[in-house]
Design a protein around this nucleic acid. Structure first.
Lengths: 225, 225
DNA sequence: AGAAATATGTGACATTTATCACAAAATAAG
DNA sequence: CTTATTTTGTGATAAATGTCACATATTTCT
């Protein structure tokens, strides 16, 4: 396989000054693996000694809660997967599953750590990422629990449209019951609320193809709760 | 004021190898401030250039959600406060308020950053802390949203008993409405559920003095949800 | 100490969401 | 291409919790 690590790393190059020898070090210790839609990339409870980087595609991060599986967030490439689970413990604390065909780069943990120590920029980049995602987690949790259905579903649709696909039209990569697991409700409620949105002319839907018609209204719903 | 930084830092010494010169650097750039119960230590939305370390006491971390204030977690000394908010952005992303009389050490951000770069142990210690608290946030959020009242309140009581005070008897540092803001419900529900627990002989209560009688039952309630 | 503000206890009632049940459709598997 | 499995659509009902309304304590402030 061609060494695609420079590509991988170029994502970081914009913000991080990475020396060629460090790139080589990365290049020498990585494996790229393809995952199909629905394949498990990281499994909660399993021992792991790799840092995982999502090169292409999209994945859901989920954790098994007291009664059901909870989707914590959806991420798109390029991004590291499971940094917190990698550093805190050798045992994965959550699962990651691809939701569309994806490519993942597995990097040896020791090499990664050495890099962190050697390259100050890289270290603070990772630190920042962790901080951002922790803050994000707090905000989302507060949002989820305080808003009700319509607000939460609006958030999900906006998240797809604005962050994940950056388009007003997209194909939902999740089933309705997954969305339910994301916003803490049953699939039935999701289904009903989607129907309401269609009725109200906020979105159009055919199968999993979704088109956002009235984004302003969606934002209103997201805000007022 | 006597330079108490060696004390402060000794917390880290167990896990981190900190050189004396580095300790001195810290010592030269810190200010210790006392806070009374209820005082605001960090205010969401305010500009900040300090790293904040809780030397003594206990504090609540809270964030303003869409409709009300959400308590994210309670922490006790010794611990850093607001690392994620300090690094991600110069503007505080959440608030921290002392819930009992406390002492806080303000450290210059630049000095802290230099230290991070110089001392690899320290850097990875901080990294780990961030990872742990992110994982904790995920777990808690899933728990909160999936359990109902009794389960959540049981969790809160156990958190006080096992982690914060490490005793079966303690004085609640939060009002019932604060607890409501913590577990996403109104003060009325908290009140009623506390009464139930008393009725069931699980706890005793006089004013804010709480005594846990049947911890086993409390854990049962916490688990089954 | 006395007044004002904040916190607690408790009932009645409305609302939201969870749950169950079952049919129809769409996808995946052989 | 046909069968099995997973998803989606929709009604009826139950259960949990949010909300409002007051009374009573308790704390804080001057």
């Amino acid at each position: 396989m061609k060494n695609e690590c420079a590509d991988c790393a170029c994502v970081l190059r914009s913000s991080v000054n990475m020396k060629d020898c460090q790139l080589e070090m990365l290049g020498g210790s990585h494996v790229v693996v393809k995952f199909k839609k629905g394949d498990s990339i990281i499994k909660q409870g399993v021992f792991s000694t790799n840092v995982t980087f999502l090169r292409k595609g999209m994945a859901k991060i989920h954790i098994s809660g007291p009664s059901r599986e909870q989707i914590v967030k959806l991420v798109k490439a390029p991004t590291y997967l499971g940094l917190p689970t990698t550093f805190g413990d050798k045992i994965n604390q959550y699962s990651v599953t691809s939701v569309i065909d994806s490519e993942v780069c597995f990097i040896d943990l020791e090499v990664f750590k050495r890099l962190l120590g050697e390259n100050k920029d890289f270290g603070s980049y990772i630190l920042m990422e962790l901080c951002k995602s922790e803050m994000e987690a707090y905000r989302r949790c507060a949002s989820r629990t305080q808003k009700q259905m319509r607000g939460n579903l609006a958030d999900v649709l906006l998240e797809f449209s604005e962050n994940l696909f950056e388009a007003d039209q997209f194909i939902l990569p999740l089933s309705q019951s997954d969305i339910g697991n994301w916003v803490d409700t049953g699939r039935e409620s999701i289904n009903r609320t989607l129907s309401e949105f269609i009725q109200d002319g906020i979105i159009e839907m055919q199968g999993r193809q979704i088109k956002i018609i009235d984004k302003k209204m969606l934002k209103m719903i997201s805000q007022n709760g």
